[in-house]
Design a protein around this nucleic acid. Sequence first.
RNA 1: UCCGGGAUCGUUCAAUGGUAGGACACCAGCUUUUGGAGCUGGUCAUGGGGGUUCGAAUCCUCCUCCCGGAACCA
Length: 571
Amino acid sequence: MSDTELTNHGDPESANPEKPLNFIEEIINDHLRTGRFGQTVHTRFPPEPNGYLHIGHAKSIALNFSLAEKYGGLCNLRFDDTNPSKEEEEYVHSIKDDIRWLGFDWEDREYYASDYFEQLYSWAEKLIKAGHAYVCDLSPEDTRAYRGTLSEPGRNSPFRNRSVAENLDLFARMRQREFPDGTRVLKAKIDMSHPNFNMRDPVMYRILHAHHHRTGNDWCIYPMYDFTHGQSDSIEKITQSICTLEFENHRPLYDWFCEKLAIHHPQQIEFARLNLTYTVMSKRKFLTLVNEGYVNGWDDPRMPTISGLRRRGYTPESIRKFCEYIGVAKNNSVVDVTILENQIREHLNAIAPRVMAVLRPLKVVIENFPEDRVEELQAINNPEDERAGSRPVPFTREIYIDQNDFMEVPVRRYFRLAPGKEVRLRYGYIIKCESVIKNDAGEILELRCSYDPDTLGKQPEDRKVKGVIHWVSVDQAVDAEVRIYDRLFTTEHPNKVEEGQDFRANINPDSLKLLAHAKVEPSLGGVKAGERFQFERVGYFSVDPDTSDSKPVFNRIVSLRDTWAKIARKS
RNA sequence: UCCGGGAUCGUUCAAUGGUAGGACACCAGCUUUUGGAGCUGGUCAUGGGGGUUCGAAUCCUCCUCCCGGAACCA
């Protein structure tokens, strides 16, 4: 059997032959082959505006928009705003900002489920007239009791057999604000003994006298998710309606409504949501972290929210590549957070300018270097990118080096500075540690060194100096604050806890270290929020919005790979 | 307990009855004025039992384990 002659314009295999198709692309190819939706692909990203987007949403956003792009189709943005008690305009703005920042464009296709309320209402009437829906007066508690349990079927509501006329009248009066919250609902009449709870006469409309962020006080009845989502997809002529696994049980109901209403019927497809090691991923838990002060807000650089990652310094490119890399499947999986960290390393390695910054300063006096001499050394801005050029870095008699680049009693294989030892100053000379100055308490105050003037840009002939360390001039350094962020949790699976505890038990108490007295090279004097750099030998850093004219503030995005730490750990 | 899903290197994604492969991680080496980057090589996997077949990760069957579901939330 051959289907090569049936390939069509949107066939992704010809676009990228190496990359295997994921299961959604296979389904789409099938639709294209059979012509179920003609030759179009139209997806949508349907957030509820009740919180901030996180990296898990990014996976869904990237999936929906990329699929549309790949097949030459479109992707809508639709706010699923059917619950006025939880939703706010503020979230609409933040969601749009985040999607735009990620680099996706819904053009003019910004929709709201609330725009469809009138259509939904008349579809509900249609179902009532066809005998497929009824008004039920059971209380929420009784509705639950009538629904049955995992092993027992439900029982029919005493209101299940009301006449069409009575149902129509009651439903109209529900809309007319005649009844208080919780007194009546509209239910679909399906099957109270169905093994799938969603089919046991699900609620379609509830009474909610609440102000809606868009429709104001026009409505006091609001449709439920199940009577909104598929219908909205249908109105927008969506072809593949992609959602997460927990909606799998809702698909029969999605299909039931489309069939009974006899409207355009998209295919719902479920995939596994993203989980990350060392991370929690739920709005409720984010709220706990924010409210209980474990972090400083939704955009705290330790949060896996899009705004948090953005503030941390992640690039949208790296997040998109991450989403592409992890793929899409139905297995419940937990992606190693190092995959995300590697994506930002890879991107920033290619584009971030290199600079020198001393996080924990230790003063070094170079005794044989003249007191008032300033030497301009040339430093390469980015060895990965020739076009980035070079810059001058001032070298003076007094410099700072990092405290952990000196060991009074060096361990084995340590090839940085130690008494009597030599080390290369990055882009500069080789220096030798002649003596260590301490205070009465025995703390190291400064190092006295000598430099070898014949080592600039060349190796000495008689000896080999392997270590290279970064440094800044004492006179010309700029004071900076550096915020060293680490993982928010100490364990891979923060939700795995002992009896009686919750994820808070696994919070990393050292997820933020404040270094208020860092010294950075003078070229970093006028940095602006959002700029990203590699601090040589240390890591990638971004300029935080807290930066002021007098003091730059840097966030550590991610450390450089640290092979030395691994060696040190092993020995 | 009932229904719906899922199970392949440490992790993630492939292999669609025909040599179980890639990436990350890990290990070893080369290179290096970032213990960064790069390059080369290597270790490691089909949840279990039966069956069909010349041949099974793939088909059948029984079992085990994991996830989701009983909001007038989405």
